[in-house]
């Protein structure tokens, strides 16, 4: 029973990590009065470039940098369209989601050859002193791209 509970809590925390990160970002844009519907697209883009960067350099931290940079580029274009050009935020968000889904699939097929079984270097596990000794020990820090993209899962 206790075992099951521990697994349940640990899974919840792990699966919640990407949601918490994404939601925090959305909170910032909501505060500024911008509805960012393309979180999904941004996460996909970041996941792809994170995996690509991590794979190309062999360094997962550079991968995270690539991921953030790629998502920033997407966000900048989106901001320009929906703020400067006053395009409908909902439409732009949906458009970017569609675009990101297509583009990452396409690039994945081109770069990773479609049939790759390559493993992507992932972030190390983080043990929190004290917490780690509890029976519910689990790692806390997660590479933000892992659950976002089901195409490549970079955290081994």
């Amino acid at each position: 029973m206790e075992e099951t509970l521990a697994i349940f809590i640990a899974s919840t925390l792990r699966l919640a990590m990407p949601l918490m990160l994404a939601a925090s970002g959305e909170l910032v844009s909501e505060r500024a009065g911008v509805l960012n519907l393309s979180l999904e697209g941004m996460m996909l883009t970041a996941a792809f470039f994170g995996a690509l960067g991590s794979w190309a350099t062999g360094n997962p931290y550079l991968g995270v940098g690539c991921a953030v940079g790629a998502a920033l580029c997407v966000a900048a274009v989106q901001a320009w369209l929906s703020v400067n050009l006053r395009a409908n935020q909902l439409v732009i968000g949906i458009g970017f989601n569609i675009l990101a889904l297509g583009a990452t699939t396409l690039l994945y097929r081109i770069i990773f050859g479609g049939l790759s079984r390559e493993e992507i270097p992932g972030l190390p596990k983080l043990s929190v002193p004290g917490l780690s000794d509890l029976p519910f020990r689990r790692r806390r820090l997660r590479c933000r791209s892992s659950a976002a993209s089901s195409r490549i899962a970079p955290c081994p």
Binding site: I7, A10, S11, R14, L15, S146, A147, S150, A153
Partner: peptide, 9 residues
Amino acid sequence: VAKAKEATL
């Protein structure tokens, strides 16, 4: 991917 991992764990 995430759910399959959790199920396996």
